[in-house]
Design a protein around this nucleic acid. Structure first.
Length: 207
DNA sequence: CTTCCGATATACT
DNA sequence: GTATATCGGAAGG
């Protein structure tokens, strides 16, 4: 059993941590068993100077853990139904993080498939909310220490990723030009890039 | 493969 | 009230 990555790994700029996370393994333990995912796509977010970051407007109840020490999980709920997971980088007050966007199931394929019964094998962890569903990541893991060898969510070292590519972040409305999305070129588990499509205004039923 | 679109909690104006 | 670091299903090529 490998030891998780040390906290010092996360005590760096998010755009340095993000590419180094590609190829690493997220291991999630629950009473049902273990699911492990090899990361193939991530995005870096900085603190109050990054308009695309949840920390842009300062600390709130939701983003509080981003302002804390590195190596903890920032899990948030979005679009009324999905969870997404980040790993906090840098120290107190800096509020940087790396969003886990996609990966390939390395262990616990059957358990992941049971959690996502309508998903094709390729799509089990292809996308940030899908990855969270496959790994059973929800509010309960908010703030979890991913450097804890006995924790329920751990980040293990992996083989250095080959074929690294970068580009703009997905689905953000500001700082579109910042190339802080990192992925493994050609990997089938990398999520399709969708430009941000503003949702149509709520339709008001006028009769 | 693509485009369209509804679901729906939470943060913010 | 409006926007959102998304997804799955339907319909078309």
């Amino acid at each position: 059993m490998d030891a998780p990555l040390p906290r010092s790994f996360f005590d760096r700029m998010p755009e340095e941590v993000a590419p180094d996370l590609l190829g690493c393994v997220i291991e999630r333990s629950t009473p049902e068993g273990v699911v492990a995912v090899r990361l193939t796509e991530v995005e870096a977010y900085a603190g109050p100077h990054d308009p695309a970051s949840h920390a842009y407007r300062g600390p709130t109840k939701r983003n509080a853990v981003m302002f804390g020490p590195p190596g903890h999980a920032y899990v948030y709920f979005t679009y009324g139904m999905h969870f997404c997971a980040n790993l906090v980088c840098l120290g107190e007050g800096t509020a940087a993080a790396v969003l886990l966007r996609a990966g390939e199931i390395m262990e616990g394929h059957d358990l992941a498939a049971a959690r996502r019964p309508r998903s094709s094998p390729r799509d089990l962890a292809r996308g940030p909310a899908r990855l969270c569903e496959a790994l059973a990541i929800d509010r309960g893991l908010y703030g979890a220490d991913v450097c804890d060898p006995a924790g329920p969510l751990r980040v293990l070292p992996g083989e250095a990723a080959a074929g690294l590519r970068t580009g703009p972040r997905t689905g953000v409305t500001s700082a579109k030009d910042v190339p802080w999305r990192f992925w493994i070129d050609g990997d089938p588990s990398v999520s399709a890039h969708r430009a941000h499509t503003p949702r149509r205004r709520t339709v008001i039923d006028q009769g």
